[in-house]
């Protein structure tokens, strides 16, 4: 199945939770995750399974005004 990760389309060949997926992608704390535009808390990440077409956003601190 295909998912979109930070705007990039990625093929995954087996069922994964968000936690498994972002760990494999090398996510570095601190970060927060949204799935299909909805916030997913860090405690929920290991229990939410990805589906075909899901959009995952992994955000980290940057400068702001």
């Amino acid at each position: 199945m295909k998912v979109e990760f930070n705007g990039e389309t990625i093929n995954i060949d087996h069922e994964q939770t968000i936690q498994e997926f972002i760990t494999a992608k090398g996510a570095r704390p601190p970060f927060a995750v949204a799935l299909n535009g909805t916030f997913v808390s860090r405690t929920e990440l290991p229990s939410v399974t990805l589906n075909d077409g899901d959009k995952i956003e992994l955000l980290s601190p940057i400068q702001g005004g």
Binding site: N6, A27, E57, L59, S60, I62, Q63, G64, G65
Partner: peptide
């Protein structure tokens, strides 16, 4: 003030946050 954006592969964001 600070913000959030997509995590990049390089370490720049981490460095910024450490400074703050």
């Amino acid at each position: 003030t600070v913000s959030l954006r997509r995590q990049q592969t390089k370490q720049a964001g981490d460095d910024f946050w450490s400074l703050i």
